[in-house]
Amino acid sequence: MRLLKLTGALLALALLGGCAAPKTVDYSAFKQSRPKSILVLPPINESPEVQASYSLMSQVTYPLAEAGYYVLPIALVDETFRQNGLTTPNDIQALPPGKLHEIFGADSALYITVSEYGTKYMLITSDTAVTASAKLVDLRTGTTLWTGSARASSEEGNSNGGGLVGMLITAAVKQVINSSTDAAHPIAGITGARLLSAGQRTGILYGPRSPKYGTD
Rank of each mutant, 00 (worst) to 15 (best):
R151E: 09
T181S: 05
D182M: 11
Y111M: 09
P35I: 01
G105Y: 00
Y54D: 13
F81L: 07
N158K: 09
I103P: 00
I204R: 05
Y27L: 06
V114G: 10
T88N: 13
S108Q: 03
A29Q: 01
W146I: 07
H101A: 06
P73H: 02
P96V: 05
P35S: 00
V165Y: 11
T144I: 15
F30V: 04
S133F: 06
A52H: 06
S55R: 00
L4K: 06
R2Y: 14
G162V: 05
S53Q: 06
T131L: 01
S153R: 11
A150M: 03
S58P: 01
T131Y: 03
R201C: 03
P211V: 11
K5R: 10
I74W: 05
L41F: 06
I74F: 08
K99D: 06
P73N: 14
V71I: 12
Q175T: 13
G163L: 01
A150I: 08
P73K: 03
G203Y: 00
L72K: 14
V50K: 14
T88F: 09
L10Q: 01
T119C: 02
Y121H: 13
Q93S: 09
Y62W: 08
Y111K: 09
V77D: 07
A12G: 14
P208V: 09
G142I: 03
L10A: 06
V176I: 15
S133R: 13
L139Q: 03
G214D: 10
I74Y: 07
A67P: 09
T128I: 05
P73M: 07
T88E: 13
A67D: 09
V173L: 14
A172N: 13
T181Y: 06
N160Y: 12
K31M: 11
P211K: 05
A65D: 06
A109G: 12
